[in-house]
């Protein structure tokens, strides 16, 4: 596939730090290969800015193969841009026309404050995980044999699909309410579907939801946008399961 090159105009959110006000800045960038990924295009822009002795654009990225969940970016009104089922690092410039104007903004959520430019602080997700996203088993090497409890393939597969969440925050960014229910739902589901996770299911649902609420995420109104924009295709089934688990937990818990 012979790659061609395009010229584009970029409108990018620039913000010095979490305390300053930001604004959209306009840049033009020429000769962008359509085989480049979106982030490689930003690398190219930064190279141009550095050569002009201007401040390069800060953005989060690491693995560049769609699995670490570090890249973000709200591109032309969509989390991770116009392609489906990909993260920004897997988005390719062939999705854009020559002469296109591309808006690039950080995730917008009260729970994800902007650190700089396009970089946001997603540690709220870590804290939710710390509140209950685990099975309380110590390292010992003396747990039972891995095959001691057979797990129906269907359950294992569903648990895996939920566990495929990369914690990028696209669900929050996309949701008109900035809700983190898909993220929390996926984590709660993974464990709720496995016998190893059932022991602590009640506490987990209560604690993770409490932490989610404390972080200032919005409420789920079932618009379903998160599922569509999730680069890993995490299903709304997981939110429904969280709703069930939490309902069960709040009815039976004596706390």
């Amino acid at each position: 596939m012979a790659a061609k090159t395009i010229n584009i105009t970029l409108k990018i959110w620039r913000q010095k730090n979490c305390n300053s006000k930001g604004n959209m800045e306009t840049y033009t960038l020429n000769d962008v290969s359509t085989a480049s990924s979106f982030l490689e295009m930003l690398d190219q822009l930064n190279e141009q800015l550095i050569n002009d002795k201007k401040e390069p654009v800060a953005f989060d990225h690491d693995c560049r193969e769609g699995i670490c969940g570090m890249c973000s970016l709200y591109i032309n009104g969509r989390a991770h841009g116009p392609d489906n089922g990909v993260t920004t690092c897997q988005l390719h410039m062939r999705m854009f026309e020559d002469g296109a104007t591309i808006y690039v903004e950080p995730w917008r959520s009260a729970a994800f404050p902007v650190v700089k430019d396009l970089v946001v602080d997603r540690s709220a997700f870590d804290r939710i995980q710390q509140a209950g996203g685990f099975v309380s088993v110590n390292t010992s090497g003396r747990t039972m044999d891995a095959n001691a409890i057979p797990i129906p393939k269907e359950d294992a597969d569903k648990a895996f699909e939920a566990a495929a969440c990369i914690g990028c925050g696209a669900c929050v960014a996309t949701c008109k309410n900035g809700s983190a229910m898909l993220f929390v739902g996926a984590k709660v589901s993974q464990y709720a579907l496995l016998p190893q996770g059932k022991v602590e299911a009640t506490q987990r649902a209560l604690n993770m939801v409490r932490q989610m609420d404390d972080e200032g995420f919005g409420n789920c109104t079932n618009t379903g946008a998160c599922e569509i924009e999730c680069p890993k295709g995490i299903s709304l089934d997981n939110i429904a399961r969280l709703n069930r688990e939490f309902l069960k937990a709040s009815l039976v818990s004596n706390k």
């Binding site: 390292t139 747990t143 294992a156 597969d157 895996f160 464990y191």
Partner: peptide, 11 residues
């Protein structure tokens, strides 16, 4: 250990 932690290996 991983299975005990809830790692969803293929089955």
């Amino acid at each position: 250990q991983c299975v005990a932690q809830g790692v969803p290996f293929a089955r």
